[in-house]
Amino acid sequence: VAALIWEQDETGSETLRSNGSPGWHDETGQLHRAHALTWQHPASGTSGVHDHADPYRNLVLLKVRRRDRSIHPVIDTIRYGVKRKHHWFWIDTGRWPYAYGTADHRGEIVPAEATWIRSRVEAPALERLPYPAVIAEGYFGADGVLPRFTRDTVTGMISDLDELNSHPATMPGEFPTVAFHGDIAVISWQQHSLSDERVLEIDRCYPDAEGLYAIGAYQWTWSIT
């Protein structure tokens, strides 16, 4: 039956791959895998993938309709998420059968028990300009730290990016654009070809309970300045 195969690869990364035949391969001839993006906590040796796939339950069946008819088959959930221009697919491993869904933004950045410390961070995606932030102490993701910013700081990023994007030496699409839609920070990239110019939304960032924004989490490589 049509399914995504959920497994842990040799690096410990939690992956999904197609069970279609012929297989889905990347440009290097390897089986194409979608890697889960999650946190690492080296001090305790834990990571967001500790609930890894059970070898007896490791198929995400795409067409199975649950007894509860309010739950859509996974493939319908995925297609509906694409149609709604969502950016994320999630599986809740906390109970069986697993819950799943799509979202336009990512809710969980690190576990609730993380402590947050003041820092200054920079990312290549933002020309390594420094920004004040709080970072989750000891947690890492996307090869960097996981920061949260005030709305004022995000507003500063937006004007910095506007300036970078309007600079004559900047290539179209070299830097992202960020814009507030109400309380939501919308992150996009310009895509240019000879015949076409369009803006592709890649993520949305909602303010959390403290009004802070984990902008670029798991998308941009943030490091401490």
């Binding site: 197609s18 889960a36 969502h86």
Partner: peptide, 20 residues
Amino acid sequence: SKLWWRLSEVSPLAEHAVHT
């Protein structure tokens, strides 16, 4: 706890699995 993937990576895989 939730595991998160980019939808843009998962949706082509899912369509591939369904259509082959």
